[in-house]
Design a protein around this nucleic acid. Structure first.
Ligand code: MN
Ligand code: MN
Ligand code: MN
Ligand code: MN
Lengths: 218, 218
DNA sequence: TTTAAAATTTAGGTAAATCTAAAAATTAAA
DNA sequence: TTTAATTTTTAGATTTACCTAAATTTTAAA
């Protein structure tokens, strides 16, 4: 049996793995989960015992095959529940993450599959994040991070790679949502921030924001 | 903050309170939750500290006002989720209890209310059990336990006061479901079992079963 | 290449929720 | 009403998931 805390660690390690080729460090996990490095070391040992991660002391961890499957299953549940909340219960995209953090731990394979069917096998959650299918495959994506776009190029927002409330509410205030057209006007070398237009209105955003906006170019 | 274990204790005490005027004993709670009496004593102390129950050592507990509210809220969530699973996701009535045991602990007032609206404010769950409204009021019930019916009288099954899988599957095998017509043919004094007809087919059921069948007489 | 800083692990501890075994209180039986 | 049985509580442990502080290892700087 896998505990709730263990599930959260696996999910965090998967998320961090998406942004790096290397093993995931203790501190990175501690930051992600807002806990202490010593707690992470403790938990990593438990996950190692259960063969959910491969661990080399002082060198970091990687998800094992079964750990990866488990992590993908949790992400699948999280995102399907977010779709449910938005499409069926009329929640806004900035209101669902916290609740999905709880719902993702409900254990019932039949429930996940029934929910998927009920929702019509969605490929993306309300934030444009890809939903793995029953076999753990993620849909192909053709998006780039806004921070990677050249000066002068443009495209539409198809996703955000973070879904915490304060980030989404900031996007709301900028009038950025899925489908919004964005053009890069200027890239500022000093801090990697960007001058952009949002549906032809100009604005200035930090690299931190640009990195979390997924753009599909025309 | 109220923990998951505390919520389960409150729900158990509410359930036991429905079948007795008196304070609820430590052993009764231990039986209901399949745990040990010493664990119950420990937990009761915590609930007492939080003023969720009134407790007299060796004499049992009762829910306090706030404990009762909390317990009703959990029952409300449990039953609404059961309705969701059956009416929206096509689950059978004997498949939902275990999953609802998990879902009842999801914390979000907005979610409960949105779910209630989405389901059309149902008054009863898939087992005929009453669903308290937003204010904690249970709908009025006009049913009796089958075990309380006189010899010769009859009625329709409108609910079951237990929803564990083995009980429901036994009912399935007897061809008893919500709406089934039952008549009491004979009451056996020796063990309080009953000779009945189920849609005019005769059968013999124990008092244990009869006590958990809710009948509405014509 | 030695030293200082940063990252990681270990040691020792806490709180929640459980357990077994023993003690104390209540209830039922003789 | 005394004794025996039953119920309940207490004492002492265990497991999970955390924490702080100290020790160790790795990395970066001088
Ligand atoms: Mn989310
Ligand atoms: Mn999301
Ligand atoms: Mn139930
Ligand atoms: Mn039910």
């Amino acid at each position: 049996m896998i505990t709730l805390a263990e599930e959260n660690y696996l999910k965090a390690i998967l998320k961090l793995s998406k942004n790096s080729e290397n093993s995931i460090s203790t501190n990175a996990i501690a930051d992600e989960l807002e806990t202490k490095a010593s707690s992470v070391t403790d938990m990593i040992k438990k996950l190692t015992d259960k063969q959910l991660v491969d661990y080399v002391p002082y060198r970091g961890v990687n998800l094992s095959k079964s750990g990866l499957n488990k992590a993908i299953e949790i992400v699948r549940k999280h995102r399907l529940w977010e779709v449910f909340l938005v499409t069926k219960l009329q929640f806004k995209w900035d209101e669902v993450h916290y609740i999905a953090e709880q719902l993702e731990h409900i254990k019932s394979q039949k429930l996940v599959d029934a929910l998927d069917t009920y929702l019509g096998y969605p490929q993306h959650d309300p934030h444009g994040e890809p939903i793995p299918n029953k076999d753990g495959q993620f849909p192909k994506s053709f998006s780039k991070r806004l921070s990677e776009l050249e000066k002068g190029s443009s495209g539409q927002v198809v996703g955000v790679s973070q879904d915490n409330q304060s980030f989404l509410q900031y996007l709301n205030s900028l009038k950025i949502t899925l489908g919004t057209s964005i053009r890069v006007i200027q890239k500022i070398d000093f801090d990697n921030s960007l001058e952009i237009t949002i549906n032809n209105e100009s604005a200035h955003i930090s690299n931190d924001v640009a990195r979390n906006l997924l753009i599909k170019q025309k």
